[in-house]
Design a protein around this nucleic acid. Structure first.
Lengths: 180, 180
DNA sequence: TTAAACTGTTAAATATCTTATACAGTTTGC
DNA sequence: GCAAACTGTATAAGATATTTAACAGTTTAA
């Protein structure tokens, strides 16, 4: 395993610059630059600090495989979990490089909310509600969707997802270019 | 996680001295001593070398938990695999410290052989064949056992296990004091 | 076009880790 | 008892990693 390239991949998957990660991790940006170039072999303590800034455990770091494969089918356990407690987020084919699409399985716990600092990013995204209900706000429009209903919008328009019910809501979504 | 104590535990679980591991790993015994005392935080490259001498991957090292717990029940996936391709070996309660017993589930592939350099170690051991057949040689005695049959002997007497059939053989065994 | 804020890289100084070597204690076998 | 072979530890010298500080290129917004 190539530590440097792997760290670079992990960092970029989380949308962080070397300096931003360095600040969160409590190391200097130069350290991260040197590690990613494999010009040094970091000490466990500093790699641990760096990963804490992502955040990711050493175990996850050394067991996650982003190497490009020709894998086509993925079991539930083979999806990469990127979310938190309230919003679970499984990325399909996370290991594949240069994807043009991020396809995700998302589960919003009751009360889950992506926040009132509305999301906004490059590209377009769409999805279908599989289970439960979810309130989606896109720009000035707001709508509550249920199973079988769907959405599609320009990601640069500020948007927000909220589960107002008391049942988990499952969505299958996709965006391009890939957020992750 | 305490890297030093963890490495020491892993090393001892595999019955290696600091010097023996150092030789296999291509580092000096002093390095291992310092790491185990947490007086240094090893570089990834040297930790990788050290683990290669065990052998164990960085991923396994950082995901294996030997911390003492009060765990009582273990699923199949919660057993610690210590064997190789031919002789699979799952240790029960590997995480528990100061066990007085090693209980194991072992599966011998067809043709598997613990080798003609007969095993010999401190303590006593016994087991029951669960599936398949296995030839066991203990000292001057040799016997082929099948399902429901069992063995028990003094581990210091040289012994050998061979699966002569073309079906895998599964054994549940125990030894004391613990080999692992 | 420009400045400001960002991106990643680099060289020298500093801090840390690894080795070489020695030490003291324990175990093994005669 | 004794020597030989082992155990883990400690220290100074050498090798390597990390920081500091500067550099050049890109992006953003006025």
């Amino acid at each position: 395993m190539d530590i440097g390239i792997h760290l670079r991949t992990v960092r970029k998957m989380h949308g962080l610059s070397q300096r931003e990660l360095a600040k969160r991790a409590g190391v200097t940006n130069g350290t991260i630059s040197l590690i990613e170039q494999n010009r040094v072999s970091p000490s466990i303590s500093s790699l641990r600090k760096v990963l804490a800034g992502i955040p990711m455990s050493l175990g996850d770091f050394f067991t996650t495989d982003f190497s490009n494969t020709t894998k086509v089918f993925y079991g539930q356990d083979e999806l990469t979990n990127l979310g938190d407690r309230d919003v679970q987020l499984w990325l399909v084919a996370a290991n594949r490089r240069d994807r043009s699409l991020s396809v995700m399985r998302e589960i919003y716990a009751p009360g889950a909310d992506t926040g009132d600092e509305m999301l906004s990013h490059e590209g377009e995204e769409g999805g279908v509600v599989v289970r439960g209900r979810i309130e989606i706000t896109v720009g000035g429009s707001r709508q509550e969707l249920g199973p079988g209903e769907a959405y599609y919008f320009d990601s640069s328009v500020p948007h927000r997802f909220r589960n107002l019910g008391d049942e988990a809501c499952e969505i299958v979504s996709a965006n391009s270019p890939p957020t992750f």
